[in-house]
């Protein structure tokens, strides 16, 4: 593709104390691309996301957002983070604010938007995640799935160039993951650039353009979903993906799994 990447990571490294969590990762994400990162826990997937929006300072390597090197010295991190949406595993909603204010507070306090303009934009984003009826509720009054959709709306409000999702459905009861995945699916269709850490294999198959398999701080294998799910080149990826498919979907074999996804696909509007 001739398009320029929105996100370019070059030889990223991160250590905590003496332990190296990320051991030289290079990755590019193109505009409107959906990349899903999978891999065993403790392999640095979340740390990678935190490095990308500089919530954690990388120990080495460089990151570009569009044409801008964000790891360069003297970069205003607050400006950078405005352009990178982040969705957390545990939602991290602002508990003292209504659903609507969770979305608008960044608009008014960070972007300096006027209150009524921010409210309009906030309602638009809540509508996008299907929560316009819950604008005046507080986080403690919402279900987990609703909370996470507010989390998504809050990030969307800032009009980010890319959205990072850190296991967005892992803290949810199984029956609530669907509503969050549907919203993410919709965003992908709208052309949002997304980098998703997730174990939701159904979502990965259907929505991802590319799957990245990470283990022990490295990218072991990356490629289109068909390749990774049906003919992974590395033995580790094959083992991990078949294990995940079994435990997450209760499917006995990869065939069951494919059949289910095909069903879902035909139901798509």
């Amino acid at each position: 593709m001739p398009e320029k990447p929105i996100l370019r990571i070059e030889n990223l490294r991160k250590s905590f104390g003496g332990t190296e969590i990320i051991k030289g990762i290079s990755l590019e994400v193109l505009p409107r691309e959906v990349v899903v990162i999978v891999g065993p826990s403790g392999t640095g997937k979340s740390t990678l996301l935190q490095c990308i929006n500089l919530l954690t300072r990388p120990t080495g390597g460089r990151i570009w957002l569009a044409d801008r090197e964000i790891t360069a010295p003297g970069v205003n991190v607050n400006r950078i983070r405005q352009r990178i949406g982040m969705v957390f595993q545990e939602f991290n909603l602002f508990n003292h604010l209504t659903t609507l204010d969770n979305v608008t507070i960044g608009l008014t306090r960070v972007l300096g938007m006027k209150a009524d303009e921010a409210r309009r934009k906030g309602r638009f984003e809540l509508d996008r995640v299907g929560l316009s009826d819950h604008a005046d509720k507080y986080p403690a009054q919402l279900s987990g799935g609703q909370k996470q959709r507010v989390g998504i709306a809050r990030a969307l409000g800032m009009d980010p160039a890319i959205m990072l999702f850190d296991e967005p459905t892992s803290a949810l009861d199984p029956e609530l993951t669907g509503e969050v995945l549907n919203v993410m699916h919709k965003l992908a269709r709208e052309g949002m650039t997304m980098l998703v850490v997730s174990h939701e294999m159904g979502f990965a198959r259907e929505v991802a353009h590319r799957i990245v398999f990470m283990e022990a701080g490295f990218i072991v294998e990356a490629g289109p979903p068909q390749q990774l799910f049906e003919a992974p080149r590395s033995e580790r990826a094959r083992q991990f993906l078949s294990m995940i498919a079994r435990s997450h979907n209760g499917a006995d074999s990869p065939e069951d799994q494919r059949g289910r996804v095909a069903d879902d696909a035909t139901r798509k509007p």
């Binding site: 607050n78 950078i80 983070r81 405005q82 982040m86 602002f94 960044g106 960070v110 809050r154 990030a155």
Partner: peptide, 9 residues
């Protein structure tokens, strides 16, 4: 962390 993530100082 959530506040910093939306660009707040």
């Amino acid at each position: 962390v959530a506040a910093r993530a939306i660009g707040m100082s």
